[in-house]
Structures are given as structure tokens and as C-alpha cells.
Amino acid sequence: MTDRLEVAVVRWPGGSRVVGEGLSALLAAYHLRTEAEKGEPVADVGGLPDRYRAEIADPGTAFDGDVVLVAVQGDAAVGCVVVTFLADGQSEIKRLWTDPGFRGRGVASALLGVALAHVAESGVNIVRLSVWEWRTPAIALYERLGFTVARSWDERDRLVCMQRAV
């Protein structure tokens, strides 16, 4: 593997079957890692809550109406992010995930750049996200992109809510 990583960000659905299968694998890894980090590890996807299993099994239905971006390198899906549009004219970024083998190479930054450009083109004024407080590298990335900590809209402990103007 070379040090230089060329990543294409594609909107899903679209691209090849590999992208769709890769998206499901990325979502599975995201949810399994998150449950483990919360101290509630599960052995496999079957142990995840129903709503997470539904995302993995059928992202097209789970994210219908949302914008799903997948970063690919060659024939591998290496990262993903979901952009939702809320009823109050805001947008939310969620499920940002980079395959651990590709971290530190700009995948998350590329995904967020495309996501923020899409939000700006959509006329939304505020974009928000939530992140677990122990994910300090993600928080640092969000801060570099202009996100600041906001009053929480989520009741879960240890969840940091952030937002920025578009």
C-alpha cells in the first residue's frame, strides 16, 4: 500500500455493488465499535439493537431521503457519512466512519467536505452532529472544520452535541 491515498466520494445509492456491500460493512463496523466503546460489546451484528441491524441490512430503506456518501479507494469502500435534513431547516451529519486501516489519510475530511458542500447548496443554515466524548480525534476534526459545542438535543450521557453555521 502506498502512503498516498486517492479517495473518491460517491453518493449512494450509486456506483457498484461493491459500494453498497461496503457501506453495509462500514455501518456494521461503526455500530459494533460504538457498542463496545459504550461498554456494551456484542459478538456480532445479530446482537445489535433492531434499528442498527436495519441500517446494516438495508441502508437504502433506513436512509431513504437522506444523502449517503461513501469514500472508495480502488474497489474498496473505506468510509461513509450520512446527511439528514431536519424539519426545522437544519441538517445533521451522522454515521461518519472510516475503516481503521485507512485512518489518518484524509478520508473523514474528504467525506465531510463533500457533505458540507452539499448542505450549503441545499440552503440549510445550520448543520449539527453528535459525537461520543471519548472520540477525541473526531471532535478535533469537527472543531477544525468550525463546529462548536452546542446545547444538547440528545439525552444520552457522554454525547457531545456540536453545530456550525453553513
Score class of each variant (00 low, 15 high):
4 R>D: 08
6 E>R: 08
9 V>Q: 11
11 R>M: 04
11 R>E: 14
17 R>L: 14
18 V>M: 10
19 V>G: 03
21 E>D: 15
25 A>R: 15
28 A>H: 04
32 L>V: 11
37 E>S: 12
38 K>Q: 12
39 G>Q: 02
39 G>T: 07
43 A>V: 10
45 V>F: 02
47 G>V: 04
50 D>I: 00
51 R>I: 13
52 Y>C: 03
54 A>Y: 09
56 I>P: 00
59 P>T: 06
64 D>M: 09
66 D>Y: 00
70 V>F: 02
71 A>C: 06
72 V>A: 08
75 D>Y: 11
77 A>P: 04
77 A>D: 05
79 G>Y: 07
84 T>L: 02
88 D>E: 13
89 G>P: 04
93 I>D: 01
93 I>T: 07
95 R>E: 00
97 W>E: 05
100 P>K: 05
100 P>Q: 12
101 G>R: 09
108 A>T: 11
114 V>D: 07
117 A>D: 15
120 A>Q: 06
121 E>C: 01
121 E>I: 00
123 G>P: 07
127 V>I: 09
131 V>E: 01
132 W>A: 11
133 E>V: 10
137 P>N: 08
140 A>C: 10
140 A>G: 14
141 L>D: 03
141 L>T: 05
142 Y>P: 06
143 E>R: 15
143 E>H: 04
145 L>W: 09
151 R>M: 08
151 R>P: 15
151 R>W: 06
156 R>M: 03
158 R>D: 14
158 R>A: 15
